[in-house]
Design a protein around this nucleic acid. Structure first.
Lengths: 387, 387
DNA sequence: GGACGTGGAGTAAACGTTTTCTACGAGAGC
DNA sequence: GCTCTCGTAGAAAACGTTTACTCCACGTCC
């Protein structure tokens, strides 16, 4: 890294290029047009020209010394490095990007990084990007499509290697048009749109999609309850039209059908994926006397609310009512009782998004679409149904 | 944003500058040295020269039209905008940064974005950065100081406006030396080092520090227990040497002293801020028969472990033992019982870090140091001591 | 001893913007 | 009718790198 013991290195040099701050270098005949720009010594960050002047070599030599891709004599290298150290020179990434190519950053666009699952996706993206020598830009939209538009534009300007949009949304025509527009625009700029945790786009749209198996996970979760003998399972689903919510609902219905249990409309509810919504809907279901013996919550936060409502009503979990969640957030294991839930490989999702975006030669399948599997994590919140 | 209804706008133009892709613009006498670089039409992202050629104006005019800081005739403006739209032109941020100044990004360096409190700091940083028209770079160190070195170097290259280091660490001489080095190096590059959630550095180091009141919060939390009549309070502290952990320990001791209670070494434990550590230490304390009636956990995660150990031992909370945490993580309110804890203004911390880094003219105080206050949130995990 | 690679260094042309000078035509004021 | 502004536009010089060409000195090989 930059030198901590700054001047010590120069002691190994011969007396050529001794590093005092006023020294302009041994060969003083290199003041072509520099003089007029000269102000104070530490006025602006030092450039490669300053280094060259101080070391008494040409800028080309400095560039090559630092790049290490060209033969440079030992003596010259030492002079250059001494100048670099004493001036605290670092390359200007903008200039570098303008001439030799620089690896573009990975842009991560999400609604709000605070959510536990999104934070894990972000960690996965950051990890994989870092491993590949790229930095990650994180931007939040707060759910505003217009801000999303602006961000895509911005990332195009930034020459981002990929723009990763993560988190479920409501899927409609306007959504498809917007995504197609993003994909085109990014493709034209040599970048790539990656959708993460969302269903695939129509064929022909130049985008990569990494999703996880909402439907299968919901199927497993519901099946776990049904296998335990439960017949009336309250479903606390997500917002209508919301991609992942609809998939989870389908999985729930699949399982019911597979077990030959008729769908009961009154047990199938929709709402936000928030604790409050889970609480209210569960309380309402209890009050209405729907006679359920199990709850499948569409997310762990919703399960949290359900647990609170059940506890408040004096209903014991899992003795009287079983509960299953979705997401496997970190605290799921620490609830009372520890929550049986569906694990989503969020970090893997992020890593895969970056990997696929950057390894485009490897055209996996013809449609740019990958689905990661989910997995039921069995803990203590499910018991066989009474009787 | 970039145009969705692309060619429609050009219909308003006169027939000058009609936009077909092969048209090189009405004034064809501007092929000075372009010809040799010409390959396919959509080979590379289009540049301002492409736009100028297509609109039949000079690059200066295009630049000025887009910047909007110079008089341009309506007809010219329309021609330029038509060309911009049809070519999907976006400015190249590297070139822009190289000439006119571009606002540098805010770099956020943390150990792991997955932790709930760090994610909130990140959200605060991102929000404030976005509000000020800057993007945020997020990098994780995984606790490796060498990687931290590299990141500071990298951010210097990127011309980051500020580098925000967030999260507690163990403070020793090596730490001070490293931070002083970072601060100097960044200052030289016109950037700013911001420490977030850490104690101040020695005077004279060009860095900004935003901390929160660990000691005061711990004092309040402990005092709450003591006021409720508890005399033997088990303290589940953090790792020795860790900045915030030590501060919280001091707050705990302050409160004991203020209530005239002698410090009992066997009740003052150290360990990681993890659930597992809290669980083990609490179980051990129960087994050793230390006779405590209250627990002050140094973090909510630790409190989680303590609750689990107590539950396992059949000790009722809060009836037999009261518990207080620290952090107020989102799920604290959803534990059984809802956890009384100390709220830390994590998002505000992030926002403040960015604000102070960018508004350096406003030299708040002589030392660049701000402490945000913490606040006790009273829930259900504390009861008066029996007898 | 001359032709020839070769290690090591310099010159200058990109890269895509912004911005400072210039330049030019058209009304305005005399 | 002649200068003065004013509105509009172009030419060209930065900005800080990288790299394709040159160039030179020094052995080496016949």
């Amino acid at each position: 890294m930059f030198p901590t013991g700054r001047l010590t290195d120069t002691s190994r040099c011969s007396n050529v290029g001794a590093v005092t701050d006023e020294d302009d270098g041994p060969s003083g005949a290199r003041e072509t047009r520099r003089a007029k720009r000269r102000r104070g010594p530490a006025d602006r960050p030092s450039t490669i020209r300053d280094v060259a002047a101080k070391a008494g070599v040409s800028v080309a030599t400095v560039s090559r010394t630092l790049a290490g891709n060209y033969p440079v004599s030992t003596e010259t290298r030492e002079r250059v490095m001494a100048a670099v150290n004493s001036l605290h020179y670092v390359v200007n990434v903008h200039a570098k990007a303008l001439s030799g190519r620089v690896a573009g950053p990975i842009a991560l666009v999400l609604r709000d990084i605070t959510g536990p699952s999104l934070a894990h996706v972000a960690a996965g993206v950051e990890e994989e990007a870092g491993r590949r020598g790229r930095l990650s830009l994180v931007c939040s939209t707060k759910g505003d499509p217009e801000r999303e538009d602006d961000l895509v534009q911005l990332m195009r300007e930034q020459h981002a290697a990929a723009v990763v949009l993560v988190g479920g949304t409501v899927i409609d025509d306007a959504y498809h048009r917007r995504m197609a527009g993003y994909a085109e625009a990014l493709d034209l700029a040599g970048s790539r749109l990656v959708l993460c945790g969302r269903p695939p786009l129509p064929a022909g749209v130049p985008a990569t999609v990494v999703d996880y198996d909402n439907r299968g996970g919901a199927f497993q979760a519901t099946a776990q309850l049904l296998t335990a003998g439960h017949r009336r399972v309250l479903f606390l689903g997500g917002a209508p039209g919301f991609s992942s919510a609809e998939e989870r609902r389908l999985g729930y219905q699949d399982a019911l059908r597979a077990h030959g249990i008729p769908l009961a409309g009154e047990l199938d509810t929709s709402g936000d994926y928030t604790r409050g919504s889970g609480y209210l809907r569960t309380r309402e279901a209890l009050r209405a006397g729907l006679g359920f013996t199990a709850v499948f919550a569409g997310s762990d936060m919703v399960a949290l609310g359900a647990l609170a409502a059940l506890r408040e009503a004096g209903v014991r979990v899992p003795d009287e009512v079983s509960v299953v969640g979705f997401d496997d957030v970190p605290f799921a294991a620490d609830l009372t009782p520890a929550l049986t839930t569906v694990r989503v490989p969020y970090e893997e999702l992020g890593r895969t998004a970056v990997r696929l975006a950057l390894e485009r030669e490897v055209e996996f399948a013809s449609d740019n679409h990958v689905v990661l599997s989910t997995q039921l994590v069995i803990r203590d919140s499910v018991r066989p149904a009474a009787g």
